[in-house]
Design a protein around this nucleic acid. Structure first.
Lengths: 345, 345
DNA sequence: TTGTAAGCGTTATCAG
DNA sequence: CTGATAACGCTTACAA
């Protein structure tokens, strides 16, 4: 009912002790006599005081208990993209020892930003566009950072994937099967997310796309690559329709840069009356299970998404505890499904 | 290189202006002459000052720009449970207008808690255990709260689902099909998450479980109900194995309280050599697509999870902007699949 | 064990 | 348009 919320000084005054004493009653940092503690607690109850204001405490302590997880693009991908989701689960696990909350942020100018959020540490996820700039800001703030799948410079711990090697392995598998008319369906090349055939002089701001494409090109240097506007079944469908529009010139194998894209390509193949594996080979990347794809099991490169996230979380925890955090590179493993086969004569 | 990070006063001093002037240069709240602004900006660049410390700013302003989303149990459920995921996507959407960040928190004593996190507002998701207590804390802090699927008292906006009605509708459907030996497989009853047959005098701290069970009992007052320890395929499998262990006494229909549980029950049915629909009817709840369930399509009650989240987010935004936020109850819709049929003679 | 004092870094207010 | 001042609410040496 009072006009103003009670502060610790109010409580202290009511209890007849100093504010500092009331403070330690709540923090427990220093022994306090039972009698005093009780008086303080009673006063607090009386005044409806529920404990120190976190804002003031964090200013004073210099810690907020918040770890930022920064994404490129819309926040919804966090919840909708299966790989990101699994990775986030790992991050949550990795920072568990810190008891920190995860603050979801995006890599743009919308609030809250890296600049305006009270972070103890940050995990940058696949942020490539403004990465350097973000890093500079965080560094000058003295906020420890870990980067997942992005190049942030020498002294920033990075959690990486062997994207190029993995995609090369898959491409080799496809070539070994005997395919020659092969096309890649890629993730977006840059923030514009433009769909279409990728020109040879394409600039990439998305490292994952660039690296997986490089692995593909290691095996099929002259093959075409069609960029999608995102990693979804719908995008894969759109790309697939382009590929299968001309029955004569269609590829015998499609190497997609994500399982979601591959699933869409498969759908397009079905639309076009093609039998997957028999008429056209389709491979994925990530190793997440895609819903509703039965009876197909994607032939794909499985990545340890949860481990990646966990490693990032643990790295952040280490840095916050003053320990060193090392970079780490994870490896994908080939997973055979039933969507790849030798081309039909 | 300096021993201490630069503050706005340092910048102001270097620029030869007052701290308050430097402040407005960064906040833009008051007109500043171009010359002054430039001097301040130059000084800031020189000192490697990247802007006001968010902790100090939020103490001063009384706003942190952070909305807490509080879950009961482990944070990983946020990323692993499909309903929660979809709902979170809605929440993110709903608070978008605020420019606030979402801080993922858990409803327990680990840091950061409701007490120690710098929140402007909070969304409590399915928190029933410590709900009252949490509410009391938040209220005395003057932090607006919205509760999703939980009863927090009269003057707290709640986003609800017609759980009882919906489950009753499903139960009626099953009865109409002709089933008599029917069993419910439920979500956990309380924080203990004990598995097993639910006694008549069971106390529920999880409203969802209680309400859906009530709807079931409206139609099958004397039927048994088997509690699972969570909402997952594995838990459904465990429950299903119990139900189908005795071929003689097995139910002809199983009404599960979530799609994940239903998927597990279906798996158990397959294990037991039963044909779903033909030998045993299995129904779900939620209307999320469960991976790998083909060729089955669950007969289920679909809930508008994203809408629920969005409504919560918008309610929070409204309260923060000083407007009133109303409670809202969403309705589930029956969705026919191929997992329910009349009992075989 | 308790109290004193000195900030933490910012920004709202109001006068100039 | 700029500056002085006074909080914001708390914590932590250090002194008593």
């Amino acid at each position: 009912m009072s006009t103003r919320r009670a502060t610790i000084s109010d409580v202290a005054r009511a209890a007849g002790v100093a504010a500092s004493t009331a403070s330690v009653v709540f923090s427990g940092k220093t022994p306090v006599s039972d009698a005093t503690r009780q008086r303080v607690l009673d006063a607090a109850a009386e005044l409806d005081y529920t404990g120190p204001d976190p804002r003031a405490a964090s200013l004073r302590r210099g810690r907020s208990g918040i770890v930022g997880v920064v994404f490129e693009g819309a926040l919804r991908t966090v919840f909708l993209d299966p790989v990101t989701r699994i990775m986030m689960d790992g991050v949550a696990d990795g920072v568990a020892s810190l008891g920190a909350g995860l603050l979801l942020l995006r890599d743009d100018d919308r609030e809250p930003t890296l600049v305006s959020a009270p972070l103890d540490a940050a995990v940058l996820v696949g942020c490539n566009a403004g990465l350097r700039e973000s890093m500079a800001i965080l560094r000058s703030r003295g906020i420890p950072v870990v980067v997942i799948e992005g190049d942030a410079g020498p002294d920033v711990p990075q959690i990486d994937l062997d994207n190029r090697d993995a995609q090369r392995e898959m491409a080799q598998h496809v070539r070994t099967l005997g395919h020659e008319r092969v096309v890649a369906v890629t993730l977006p090349c840059d923030a514009s997310r433009r769909r279409g055939w990728i020109p040879v002089d394409q600039q990439f701001t998305v490292d994952v796309t660039r690296d997986r494409l490089a692995g593909f090109r290691d095996v099929f240097p002259d093959a075409g690559a069609l960029a999608a506007a995102g990693s979804s079944i719908d995008e894969g469908l759109i790309a697939g329709r382009v590929l299968f529009a001309d029955p004569a010139g269609r590829p015998t194998a499609v190497i997609a840069q994500s399982d979601m894209l591959a699933a869409g390509v498969i759908r397009a193949a079905e639309e076009a009356g093609l039998r997957v594996a028999h008429d056209v080979t389709v491979t994925g990347f990530d190793g997440v299970s895609v819903d509703g794809l039965a009876p197909y099991e994607l032939t794909t490169m499985a990545q340890p998404a949860a481990d990646k996230g966990r490693a990032a979380g643990q790295a952040v925890a280490a840095m916050l505890e003053g320990r060193d955090a090392a970079s780490f590179r994870f490896t994908c493993t080939f997973r055979a499904g039933n969507t790849a086969a030798a081309p039909s004569a």
